[in-house]
């Protein structure tokens, strides 16, 4: 990453950021839209902004996306 880009990432703070708590509530719905090939940023714009800036929520998002993809469609027997 160039110094310029690194600085932009370091100072990323975009208006409309929904914050951690709002994202936690809807993270499953957000991930489901991604798995369906839809753009979750259209439905949850504030969370899309937040996930680009918050390392903790980003890690949770990546984990849930991978889990939902890998362990999908399990029916109760």
């Amino acid at each position: 990453m160039t110094g310029h880009r690194r600085l932009e990432e370091l100072l990323r703070a975009q208006a409309g950021d929904a914050g951690c708590t709002a994202g936690e509530e809807i993270l499953d719905a957000y991930v489901e839209l991604e798995l369906a090939g839809e753009d979750p940023a259209r439905v949850f714009p504030g969370t899309a902004i937040h996930l680009r800036s918050c390392p903790g929520c980003q890690a949770d998002h990546d984990g849930l996306l991978e889990a939902a993809r890998r362990f999908a469609d399990v029916k109760p027997r």
């Binding site: 936690e24 499953d28 903790g56 949770d60 849930l64 889990a67 939902a68």
Partner: peptide
């Protein structure tokens, strides 16, 4: 019902691990 039930349930375990 905003997601599959399993995706909703997995969210809890991801948060616990985190």
């Amino acid at each position: 019902g905003l997601s599959r039930f399993t995706t909703w349930a997995y969210k809890f375990v991801v948060f616990e691990v985190s």
